[in-house]
Nucleic acid binder design. Structure first.
Lengths: 374, 374
DNA sequence: CGCCCTTGTGAATCGACGC
DNA sequence: AGCGTCGATTCACAAGGGC
């Protein structure tokens, strides 16, 4: 990067820092609101658009009581074409304000998610996963006419196929008891003390559980990232963002929701430094070069290392490289060459003897990391 | 209906009965093949179209071994537009051959399901549920770059909003231990003895588990219904249809698949004569429904069960309910009724014979749980 | 026969970085 | 943009062999 470009970037960054409405809810239609934001200023978008629910008449429970369903005016669209146009409009604006390595989450049900998914693919977004929110306590199908609608679908997508999106693999694996996090997540629906109510009535018909946003933000954003929610509602995204040390921007048309959201987020407390830093450590374990172990004395130069079946034995050199007959290279590269394999994880492939036991050299790395913690 | 129309309908029904290629696999492109079928002759369609995976380079496991991916020519499309056109074509033909009160199932992944869902809505199909097949043993994400892709999505749709589709609510509730069947289903991927192999290699890259088709056909079709599968592959739909007493028609381009499917279905026995199938038990929720044992093949439909003193004998039905003379119900409900007791633990009450021994049906549950443990 | 260990494999849009 | 280098990654089963 030249001097001029660097100066420009700094200026743009400065301008952005000054102008971005962080911690604010923009009023009015979300497309109009997003137009007030500069290009490529947002790291992550979470969107919970109207579901285009096509409810016929009223819905009653078997005991005759009335189901307080979504009948709000904002959730009615005259046709699929109108809904599609609406979807293209807000997704296009999201695409503009999102950084090129940013990502998008959308949540929906079978009423709208197929249209949203197809349109975002058409716009160039690259789907990374679809994720299923399994509701532990869904509303039953009172009429016994279909399967209990027990899940909603989320789509996680990057700006394009080549984007370098953020994924906190380690944090997710830790959160899931050392197993890879799967694409099906189990959470209860939003209720109890978490559900905003006023005069005994729920403030918003489709308030999302905070646990859902917690996992979304923890998995695909970093501390300090700017998170935009174009359909802010009562501000679950903002509340969880604040808690996790992320910046946030909301868009919301209805002043009642804006007011409730601001009051809610005001009360929210950020997690303290230690809680956040612990997660950070889990998120991206510092990389350790094999050479650092040699340097640190955990593995002496001259140590013999070998694969599990003792087909090959190599010697550790002072610079952290291995030598085996006339071939030499890094722990990964030499393992790969010797096996003729397309790749090799040297940490798992090479073993050494310590106190009479055979251990993968990764054991030494774990010791090193343990010592480095404190 | 006037006299003339009635006569026409009868004639059409007669003609259909004579001409429909029941129990046959039509060769060639499925759109061409379906054109050979009359209008409105099919009760249920199950479709497993190409997913349009668009895979990049090779993928290796962390141990260096190679993943045998779907590289077949039938999964290649030049663009979303080409895939959409293909989808519109076959769905349009499905719509014609399907009865007005018939229904459609489609299965897919995030690569294609959003496009399929939007197009079928555009064509006038009315989505009844989206259903998630949660895989108990999915392939991990080896590179740690995303969430484990642990599910596929099914869409269940009727011909239109007002259609009187078939839904066997009672059967599903019984199958699920007296709880409404939810929209998330847990099954293992197809493997073991169920997976068709030739010379040690899988015959079809994407063979679906029979338990999945079992639930689809049991929930949304009746005995004697005509089930059409436009992407027949190795004939899971046909095999399960035959077992459950449904008629079937398949379409399949590749002669190798057709041959394998016919041989497989030939061996299949209709329900009441069926021996214990080789289907493996799935990983289960802690609570096991009796229906899951039937679905998983641990107890075959048609099995005789009886109380310890052999006062009553009942027959296991395909949905996991029991029938004894004219009374029927769940294992708990029927036991309670027959004894005139206030309640009954069906697991302890009912027994069956296995390898010459009399065991409570709870023994089968224990086996099931054992398989699901670890 | 049972137990333990090893090996194989499944619809997968599966690096990052520097030169 | 292409290429070489460094580096970091897996879960649930089934099947088969050894003892």
């Amino acid at each position: 990067m030249g001097v001029l470009e660097a100066a420009k970037t700094r200026a743009a960054a400065l301008e952005t820092a000054v102008e971005l409405p962080l911690g604010q809810i923009l009023s009015g239609d979300c497309v109009e609101a997003m137009r007030r934001l500069p290009d490529a200023c947002v790291d992550l978008v979470f969107a919970d658009p109207p579901y285009n629910l096509q409810l016929g008449g009223d819905l009653n429970r078997p005991d005759g009581s009335h189901v307080d369903a979504v009948t709000d005016e904002w959730d009615r669209f005259d046709s699929f074409a109108a809904y599609d146009q609406f979807t293209r409009d807000w997704l296009t604006e999201v695409r503009r304000v999102l950084k090129s390595d940013g990502a998008l989450w959308v949540i929906g049900s079978y009423h709208n998610i197929f249209r949203v998914g197809a349109i975002l693919q058409d716009l160039g977004f690259w789907i990374l996963n679809d994720v299923v929110w399994r509701k532990s306590n869904p509303m039953p199908n009172f009429r016994g006419t279909r399967f209990t609608n027990a899940h909603e679908t989320l789509i996680w997508a990057s700006q394009g196929e080549k984007s370098k999106y953020q994924f906190n693999y380690r944090a997710m694996k830790t959160l899931n008891d050392e197993l890879q996090m799967r694409s099906d997540w189990l959470f209860p629906i939003c209720g109890g003390g978490e559900r905003l109510k006023e005069g005994g009535h729920k403030v918003h018909p489709t308030q999302k559980p905070e646990a859902l946003l917690y996992r979304v933000l923890l998995s695909t954003s970093e501390r300090g990232d700017v998170v935009l929610d174009p359909f802010f509602g009562t501000g679950t995204t903002g509340a969880v963002a604040k808690r996790l040390g992320r910046e946030w921007i909301g868009c919301e048309r209805e002043s009642g929701y804006r007011k409730a959201a601001l009051a809610r987020i005001e009360k929210e407390l950020p997690l303290d430094e230690s809680a956040l830093s612990t997660m950070q450590a889990g998120r991206s374990a510092p990389k350790v070069a094999f050479g650092a172990l040699v340097e640190g004395g955990l593995i002496a130069p001259g140590t013999q290392v070998f694969d599990k079946k003792r087909r090959w034995t190599a010697t550790v050199r002072a610079d952290g490289s291995l030598i085996c007959d006339k071939q030499h290279g890094s722990i990964h590269g030499l393992g790969k060459e010797l096996q003729g394999a397309p790749s090799c994880n040297g940490w798992a492939f090479w073993h050494y003897e310590v106190e009479g036991e055979i251990k993968p050299i990764d054991a030494a790395r774990q010791l090193y990391l343990l010592a480095a913690e404190d």
